[in-house]
């Protein structure tokens, strides 16, 4: 019950402050909020009823109450007014779970994934996006293109000429190119299909020697420049942005792309 309450409060808080997007895909926002409210109604009612129900069972049919609450000894939270689970180990376990959950869901500030996860998952390993055939870069409107769209186009291996000279403005977080960390960084985003667990990093290479002196890893930047052949020899990316300006920015409200 306490865990339900923690979960509900955390969910509703994220919904109200618009931070639900840090964890799940927008298509679940409404469903999640509705279920949280519904569960809140039940939980409030439970807080009112459970203590008296337990007391009644105690008074009238003690054996029955005992059966009903014969808790399995692992991770059983103590219900308010309910019977504690048998054994101190179980009690310590439940308290631990509750405290850790409260800490993780309520006390920790909501956060996005970081470069540490980029390293665990291949950057641009898998991107579904627009195909080169479907888009005419010379005349098309690509101002709305996201990091994901560009990364997908580049990954398809179109020639450098195809991109050369195309102006581009992209916002994302900074993550180093593992093959040439000194000269190249990625302006990267996570693509989320369901929730943060399935986040796939995508990124577009930016050729900017000495970038590490100016921007810390994981900081958010807006890069304006043109696509060109990547001058870096070590980097596996053949196409990179030659930046005109790189400006620090704050993390957008929707840090992920979908």
């Amino acid at each position: 019950m306490l865990l339900s309450l923690i979960g509900i409060i955390a969910t509703l808080w994220l919904t109200v402050t618009g931070q639900l997007g840090l964890y799940i895909h927008p298509r679940y926002f409404v469903f999640t909020a509705v279920m949280a409210v519904l569960a809140a109604v039940f939980t409030v009612a439970a807080f009112a009823i459970v203590p008296s129900a337990d007391a009644e069972l105690d008074d009238t049919e003690h054996d029955h109450a005992h059966d009903d609450h014969a808790h399995e000894p692992d991770h059983q939270p103590e219900e308010p007014g309910g019977k504690p689970p048998s054994g101190t180990a179980a009690l310590v376990g439940s308290v631990l779970v509750i405290v850790l959950t409260a800490g993780a869901l309520l006390a920790l500030p909501p956060a996005t994934l970081t470069t540490s996860t980029v390293e665990k998952r291949d950057l641009n390993a898998s991107v579904a996006g627009p195909t080169a055939e479907s888009i005419d870069l010379t005349g098309g409107d690509y101002s709305s293109f996201t990091v994901k769209d560009w990364a997908a186009l580049i990954r398809q291996g179109a020639s450098d000429d195809y991109f050369a000279g195309t102006p581009v403005t992209l916002t994302g977080f900074v993550t180093p190119d593992p093959d040439d960390a000194e000269n190249v960084f990625y302006v990267a985003r996570f693509v989320v299909t369901c929730c943060a667990v399935d986040a796939q990093p995508v990124g577009v290479a930016v050729y900017a020697p000495g970038w590490q002196d100016r921007f810390p890893v994981d900081s958010w930047v807006t890069v304006t420049g043109e696509f060109d052949a990547n001058p870096s020899l070590a980097s596996l990316q053949t196409t990179a942005i030659t930046p005109v300006t790189i400006e620090e920015t704050t993390q957008p409200n929707q840090p992920y792309v979908y």
Binding site: I24, T32, L105, P110, V197
Partner: peptide, 9 residues
């Protein structure tokens, strides 16, 4: 972040 996202989801 990952664990919370599984829980919230």
């Amino acid at each position: 972040t990952l664990s919370i996202s599984v829980v919230i989801e």
